[in-house]
């Protein structure tokens, strides 16, 4: 077993365990922490695939900014545990087995169909080549994303601002 395969197996196990934990946990804050572990494991996998810039962006933007936003909103809303609902009979006896079947089938088919693909030798100066691509070939989409982010900021501000008639809500009740 090569060291790369060993690192891959460890990181993959962490990622899958975290993803399963996102689904199993009933409290949203626990799900959020699990999702952060998934993202950090994925950043390690990106390093293994020799894409250092994306690994850094994954940790800084995804784990550092987006998930902090999630945790912030969970705490702002004082979100409590998810209400337990009895799954309908169809969901229990057809949904769960079908979901597990979907997982195994997807992984098996995609893995089997691409078994002959092997990684090419890595390009020299990956980050340099990436920035060249980003600012030469993809410069127009890159500028468009800045407009997208501006619109998103405005949209978030307009949506989340308190309206005229809505009183300020004090109190500690949990929202579930």
């Amino acid at each position: 077993m090569t060291p790369q395969l060993a690192i891959f197996l460890v990181l993959a196990a962490i990622a899958v365990a975290g993803a399963v934990n996102v689904i199993l946990q009933r409290h949203p804050i626990h799900s959020a922490i699990s999702l952060i572990t998934v993202m950090i494991a994925l950043a390690g996998l990106f390093l293994l695939l020799e894409s250092e810039f994306i690994a850094a962006v994954q940790i800084i933007v995804y784990a550092g900014a987006i998930m902090v936003l999630f945790v912030f909103v969970i705490m702002l809303l004082n979100a409590g545990a998810e209400e337990r609902t009895n799954m309908s009979r169809m969901a229990r006896y057809a949904g769960v087995p079908l979901a597990i079947f979907l997982l195994i089938e997807l992984a098996y088919q995609i893995g089997a169909a691409t078994l002959s693909m092997t990684p090419q030798p890595p390009a020299a100066e990956v980050t340099r080549g990436l920035s060249m691509l980003l600012f030469q070939d993809f410069v127009f989409p890159f500028e468009l994303t800045s407009i997208l982010i501006l619109i998103a900021i405005l949209g978030a501000l307009v949506l989340a601002q308190r309206g005229e008639g809505v009183p300020a809500k004090g109190g500690q009740q949990k929202i579930s």
């Binding site: 891959f8 997807l106 992984a107 995609i110 893995g111 089997a112 691409t114 693909m117 092997t118």
Partner: peptide, 19 residues
């Protein structure tokens, strides 16, 4: 190591997201 390991892991994570 073959790329298909990464793709299988990606499929599993996507399936868990759907679930």
């Amino acid at each position: 190591m073959p790329i298909s390991y990464y793709l299988a892991l990606s499929a599993v994570l996507f399936g868990l997201g759907v679930i």
